[in-house]
Simulated scan of single mutants.
Amino acid sequence: MIVRPGENEENGDVTQGDHPLSINPDSEWQTFFKDNEVLLQIDKDVRRLCPDISFFQQPTEFPCTEVVNSHGVKRLHTRVQRRVLKCANVERKGLGITKIALSVKKATEDYAPMTEGKEAHWEVVERVLFLYAKLNPGQGYVQGMNEIVGPIYYAFSSDPDITFREHAEADCFFCFTNLMSEIRDFFIKSLDESDQGINRMMTRMLVQLKNCDLDVWLRFQQLDLKPQFYSFRWITLLLSQEFPLPDVLRIWDSLFSDERRFDFLLHVCCAMIVILRNQLLEGDFPSNLKLLQNFPPMDVQVILSKAVELSQQKIF
């Protein structure tokens, strides 16, 4: 599944077989390089996961022994490790060079890898996403999936029962795969216009808003404030970026317990707008867009209660 070309070469001469410059479509090296393109994006995304808490930077209690004791060989992030080149600023006066200032710039890395024998939570999430991409080549990895898998992994790896925490990675992969089977249309551009595609979902949300609060809907039409500007992220990422992680878990608890969970998701989105109706009716385009893209902190129970109220109005 995870290709490591050259591992099985019995001698040093690989020119007669597979090698890094091979153009053979079945080449392990070709697969390796293509995988690294995906892995590079995953690595960037998981290092940014939930920056407001330190959980994903902490070591897991149950690291993968085969990986953490491989002297870094089997750690995925080492395949796309960043290299920083030295640079020099040259000041020139007339025809002569007067000064060369050599400097080395290093990017800050908050989510640093663990030492041998340890593994950070973000490394586990990276492995989950990479394996998912390998098992689903038709879809692959799409930026934003990290925001979906993060709360799932956090819930399992924070379980008070140690026997459940021990299997957090496997449980997370199973649940993430099942959830993605329901929301995969959100991440496939060619399906944007399908019944469960993102454009269709945003249209349904706007229709519901029109039925439950015509004044706000008219204000949005007047300002040409399209749902793509704010609700695309809400729906695609299941509100995982709009609230702190504990609030996301509370929202998801209600969301996933509902058989018509995606209808309820739209109710929650509409509730978020209706709750802000006074500010939205008074605001102009920039202020309203900023308000919707940076939803103000509030008790999520208020939002969920309003969503339940809207769901009982049967306005779809």
Rank of each mutant, 00 (worst) to 15 (best):
N8E: 14
N8D: 14
T15F: 07
T15R: 11
G17L: 05
D18V: 11
H19L: 14
I23A: 13
I23Q: 11
P25N: 02
F33A: 15
D35S: 09
E37P: 00
K44Q: 13
P51F: 10
I53G: 00
Q57M: 15
P59T: 15
V67S: 04
G72R: 15
R75N: 09
T78N: 13
K86C: 00
E91H: 13
T98W: 08
T98M: 08
K99A: 12
A101V: 14
A101H: 10
S103I: 14
E109C: 12
D110C: 14
A112F: 02
P113M: 12
W122G: 01
Y132P: 03
K134V: 04
N136A: 02
Y141P: 00
M145D: 01
I148W: 02
I148T: 08
Y153L: 07
Y153A: 01
F156G: 08
S158A: 02
D161K: 14
F164P: 01
A168S: 14
D171F: 05
D171C: 09
C172N: 05
F173H: 10
N178M: 13
N178P: 07
S181F: 11
R184V: 12
D185N: 14
F187D: 02
L191R: 15
S194Q: 10
D195S: 11
Q196G: 09
I198A: 06
M201T: 08
V207K: 04
Q208M: 10
K210Q: 12
K210I: 01
C212I: 10
D215G: 06
V216M: 08
V216H: 04
L218K: 12
L218V: 12
R219L: 06
D224M: 10
Q228F: 09
Y230I: 00
L249I: 08
W252Y: 05
S254L: 07
F256S: 07
F256R: 09
D263Y: 05
F264R: 07
F264K: 04
C270M: 06
C270Y: 01
M272Q: 07
V274I: 15
L276C: 07
E282C: 09
N288I: 02
L292G: 10
Q293G: 08
P296C: 03
D299R: 12
Q301S: 15
V302M: 15
I303T: 13
K306P: 04
V308M: 11
E309V: 08
F316E: 10
F316S: 01
